[in-house]
Write a protein that binds this DNA or RNA. Structure first.
Lengths: 180, 180
DNA sequence: GTCTATATAGCGATAGAC
DNA sequence: GTCTATCGCTATATAGAC
């Protein structure tokens, strides 16, 4: 636990990348092993089953969220603004873990859906002191969910309608005005 | 086209239900045929391939959206309010088609993602005249996306954090205040 | 620890009877 | 128009050598 083998992390990274780039269907044991540079047997030494591989991904997700919460409260721009800004898929480790878990959740993986809900609850708790009331809190969370949803759909395919640059700044300003 | 066989619609309904309830992975030809009360061969008479089955679902989706747009503009409560309210999964034919298509899109089905994007664009056009500017328009669309996203994740599993009743009314009021 | 080879099972699709 | 039977492919997982 304290010093995980390098190969194990490489396999987990490959699994995550396969989920993000090609969806859950393409994230097969074969494909993951090949991408990680090990054989299928080698993969199964580190993760005894696909369930174990998925479980490790969800563990990583929940660990990264706790780190993110610490960073967010220390940010100067304000918690709500930072939260909305980081809702866009920016290829940070946390973003990647979330998108990968979302792909998993959509295949009916109950544990992945539960993890994502736990993550959302943690954010909800962190944002509550910075919003006017529960309605405003829900608004912030839903805009974030919407950004993630579009980010996850448009991945690698079509030019998404996601706000960037000045448009994103304007959106953040509008949400902040409505929420606090 | 004008008088579709009953069995065909039953198969399509069963495919949609399988996608919604169990995700794309569980929506196999076998399972759909069994749920529709026909054999696999019988299913393949109506839909020559799984691609054809998926295509028919997306056709249904785009047809239902056009009907929805007509209804929405005729609603007394206001276009933005009606749009947010109907973003919650209420088991209407359109809601079911959207959630089913979302499940499909997450498996990497490019046509499903393209259909969903077309649907979103149609809504965007309908809402534009009722919002103050492009930023406000994006806010409305993102809140709706967020509601759908949570609706799709929580299906059948956990008690979702989705606003209902008075909470939903308050959310709608807040979005309307921010958007117009 | 990592490999190759293989068992097992499920899926989409075809062929042809009725 | 609907059925049964079966083929071919792919995916997970096991067995055991190195």
């Amino acid at each position: 636990m304290s010093r995980p083998p390098h190969a194990r992390e490489k396999v987990l990274d490959a699994f995550e990348a396969a989920l993000i780039d090609g969806g859950a269907r393409s994230a097969t044991m074969d494909a993951v092993a090949a991408a990680a540079g090990v054989s299928k047997g080698g993969l199964l030494y580190h993760f005894a089953s696909k369930d174990a591989l998925e479980g490790a991904l969800l563990e990583r997700l929940e660990r990264l969220v706790e780190e993110d919460l610490d960073d967010m409260s220390a940010d100067a721009e304000g918690v709500v603004a930072t939260f909305i800004r980081t809702s866009l898929h920016t290829d940070s480790p946390l973003d990647r873990a979330i998108v990968a878990a979302s792909r998993l959740a959509q295949t009916g993986h109950a544990d992945a859906a539960a993890s994502l809900r736990r993550v959302r609850t943690r954010w909800e708790e962190a944002l509550r002191p910075h919003t006017r009331d529960e309605t405003a809190l829900q608004l912030v969370l839903l805009v974030s969910d919407g950004l993630y949803f579009n980010s996850a759909l448009g991945e690698g395919a079509l030019p998404g309608p996601l706000p960037r640059g000045a448009d994103l700044d304007a959106l953040i300003a509008l949400v902040e005005r409505a929420a606090r």
